[in-house]
Amino acid sequence: MTVQHRINAYWTGRAPSYDEYVQRPDRFAADQQAWSAVWAQALSAGPLDVLDVGTGTGQAAVLLAGLGHRVTGIDLAEGMLERARQHAAAMANGPVIQHGDAVHPDFPAGSFDAVTSRYLMWTLREPEIAVANWVRLLRPGGTVAVVDSTWFPNGLDNAAENFADHYDHQVQAVLPLATAQSIDQTVAVLEGAGLAQVTVTPLASIFELDRRFGVAPNHEHQMQFLVTGQR
């Protein structure tokens, strides 16, 4: 089993519980409002053609579509794709959800105005190659916008069921941002791909929601960041 197959298997198994957490009713409306504001800040007014890489259950893709963008979401974990398709089908002008590799997205150059991701960078193999490929997909003036944090600065110590079985040492060896000490390491990847005006925005609104409602199991309460760059 390849490294990526191990990652896919983990997230396919996690998909039901992950999606239930994202959709939990106690903070769903607040999350929708806060994350919509994050993505509205990240991208110019649409409608834009947006590729959401590592779309997971489609949380970002659905919100981006709700902002009026034309969104395509890709992922390699079939369990996540199943959930994302269900959410996309439930809305008018929802995102198109496809099987696809975030590192090597199979689209012609200049296909999109923006490439987005949420909680992907830490588990992204070959991030330098991936972001360079995203830049190739952008039209002039396009945007890369990623949301992530430094989830495991002290190593991938996570008590989630089967996490260590899938994110073993072989997997960790090819995920250079998995144990990043600072969001600056993600900034360096975007700058290295030739993006200009790379900007980091701490997501205080999400931090406050996590304070009010609590964080996901086996996670710490910590700041998340929006990192954007322009082609």
Rank of each mutant, 00 (worst) to 15 (best):
M1K: 13
R6K: 15
W11Q: 11
W11R: 10
G13T: 00
R14E: 15
A15E: 09
Y18R: 06
D19Y: 08
P25R: 11
D26P: 07
Q33A: 13
Q33Y: 01
S36F: 12
S36H: 08
Q41M: 04
L43K: 00
L48W: 03
V50C: 02
L51T: 07
G54I: 02
G56D: 11
T57L: 02
G58P: 09
A60T: 09
A60C: 03
L63M: 14
G66Q: 13
L67P: 07
L67D: 08
G68D: 12
R70I: 02
I74S: 05
E78A: 15
E78I: 04
E78G: 13
M80E: 13
L81Q: 13
R83T: 14
A84T: 02
A90D: 14
H99F: 14
D101H: 06
V103Y: 11
D106I: 10
D106K: 08
P108H: 11
P108I: 01
G110A: 03
F112W: 05
D113G: 04
V115W: 15
L120S: 07
L124K: 12
L124I: 03
R125K: 05
N133K: 08
N133R: 09
V135P: 06
R136T: 15
L137R: 00
G142I: 09
V144M: 01
A145E: 06
V147I: 14
F152V: 10
N154K: 06
G155E: 11
L156S: 15
A160D: 15
N162C: 07
D165G: 14
V174A: 08
A178E: 07
T179W: 02
D184I: 01
E191S: 02
A193F: 02
L195Q: 03
V200W: 05
T201M: 05
I206Q: 10
E208K: 15
A216T: 01
N218C: 03
N218Q: 01
M223T: 12
Q224T: 05
G229P: 08
R231P: 00
